[in-house]
Amino acid sequence: MTTLTEDKHAYSGSTNNRVVYDTKDLNLWYGQTHALKDINLSIYEKEVTAIIGPSGCGKSTFIKTLNRMVELVPTVSTSGTITYNDKSILDKTFKVEDLRTQVGMVFQKPNPFPKSIYDNITYGPKIHGIRSKKVLDEIVERSLRGASIWDEVKDRLKENAYGLSGGQQQRLCIARCLAIEPEVILMDEPTSALDPKSTLRIEELVQELKKEYSIIIVTHNMQQAARISDKTAFFLNGEVVEYDKTDTIFTTPSDNRTEDYISGRFG
């Protein structure tokens, strides 16, 4: 039996931060496809954790497992455990709605609702029972400020969200996520559909957000991972090849495959 520190997949660095997510021997299948293999990862509070790896290696699957969105695919089955704040979330008795209230998600393609900007933000609070107009107004302003898009939209809150640019839509989606004040924000390639300028704004935003939120971000962009993350996990064929401080991963990786991937030799 190995202890956590000896397990080469599990990074237990010198950080003082608390562990929010802890996965133990996590396996996932889509029908017969074995998409995640023995994942053991500890993810820390108020850090940015980047997930990198070639296409199809299971990055999206992994973060969708963290809020159990992966279960929307009916053929999915899992084994192993995921602990979130010391609760085992893969238990069938665990309410996914509670989990997803505490763990927000931002998707690859901006996906605002076909409603007004205001209604997009208040959607989360309203479904969770917050009705007071005063409170909602305040949440709207605070979330939009939090996603640094307030100044751009404050005069058009009643307009349809589809009138915004792609980059603005994505920040609106982040704001929508902030409106219910989650602890963790999962981001699946949030900038891959955006132009460089919008990408930069989101990256800056992520740096701001990490003061209050734990962020797990999937990215294909090596520079992005290097720029904004504290830890990086490298996935390959459903396995975690290496998980370490971002600096270490990008300067002195311990696995050849990591080095190959980062230097662009495959992927």
Binding site: T101, P125, G129, I130, V135, E138, I180
Partner: peptide, 8 residues
Amino acid sequence: AVNVREMI
């Protein structure tokens, strides 16, 4: 002023 987490 408003603690959303707690309200929810």
